[in-house]
Simulated assay, not measured.
Amino acid sequence: MTKLSVNINKIATLRNSRGGNMPDLLKAVNDIQNFGAEGITVHPRPDERHIRYKDVTDIRPLIRTEFNIEGYPSPKFIELVKKVKPHQVTLVPDAPDAITSNAGWDTITHLTFLQDVIGTFKEAGIRTSIFIDPVAELISYAAKTDTDRIELYTEPYAKGYEKDREAAVAPFVEAANQAKKLGLTINAGHDLNLQNLRFFNEKIPFLKEVSIGHALICDALYYGLEQTIIMYKDQLIKK
Results as ranks from 00 to 15, higher is better:
108 I>F: 05
166 E>F: 06
20 G>W: 01
224 G>T: 02
207 L>N: 04
42 V>Q: 05
157 Y>R: 09
98 A>R: 08
125 G>L: 00
47 D>V: 06
237 I>R: 11
225 L>G: 04
80 L>M: 01
170 A>H: 03
85 K>P: 02
169 V>Q: 04
22 M>H: 11
90 T>G: 13
230 I>N: 12
69 I>W: 06
195 Q>H: 12
95 A>R: 14
195 Q>I: 13
206 F>D: 14
97 D>Y: 08
28 A>S: 15
223 Y>P: 01
143 A>F: 01
62 L>W: 03
128 T>Y: 00
222 Y>F: 14
179 A>V: 07
72 Y>F: 14
41 T>D: 09
209 E>T: 06
15 R>P: 12
71 G>L: 11
75 P>T: 10
19 G>W: 01
237 I>K: 15
140 S>Q: 14
139 I>P: 09
218 C>S: 15
202 E>M: 10
37 A>R: 07
194 L>V: 08
236 L>A: 08
70 E>T: 00
110 H>Y: 14
153 Y>P: 05
127 R>K: 14
209 E>A: 01
238 K>W: 03
40 I>R: 03
12 A>M: 05
180 K>H: 08
27 K>S: 12
28 A>T: 14
120 T>S: 12
206 F>W: 08
193 N>V: 09
182 L>Q: 08
143 A>Q: 15
230 I>V: 14
95 A>N: 12
